[in-house]
Amino acid sequence: MITKVLTKIIKQTDAPVAFAHCDGPCGVYDPASARIAAEAVLSMSKKMEGLADSTDIHDKNNFARYANIKEEQAKLAKDEVLVLWTDYFKPEHLEKYPDLHDLIWQTTKLLSKAKQHVDPAVAQEALDNIQKIHDIFWESKGKDVAWYTAS
């Protein structure tokens, strides 16, 4: 009796929702999203480097805008890589590609570094790693998808 009364009292307040479904039921994954964002990081890093010595106020404004875009796109690239890691890749992929864990880890670290610094070499290294993830991803799906860049 007391259990029922307590349960009724507890249920007067809303409980936080826990999801018993997936956040990507269509199963659509593609490293292209990470690649596009990482390309933007590389592009912004190069543009910022080119404006480093300028004292022109318009250049300063652009520098700030590029920094903002670099920050956003690096985070996006990192998120996209982590979604592949947590939602697509499975234990059998790790068995087949034993370096995959380290590759993902290093890529996300590089993307964090690309946010913290203005260093096109770091951004390029992150993009190179995303190409390796691309190769593994499509091989795991049995498809021959060539790597390309938009820029």
Partner: peptide, 25 residues
């Protein structure tokens, strides 16, 4: 089902409460 002990543990913060959304379980 939650018994009296579980409910008391919820009251003292030793349990967390969640509402299920979705059909996967």
């Amino acid at each position: 089902p939650a018994n009296l002990k579980e409910l008391l543990l919820l009251f003292v913060g030793k349990r967390k409460r969640f509402k299920i959304e979705g059909h996967s379980m």
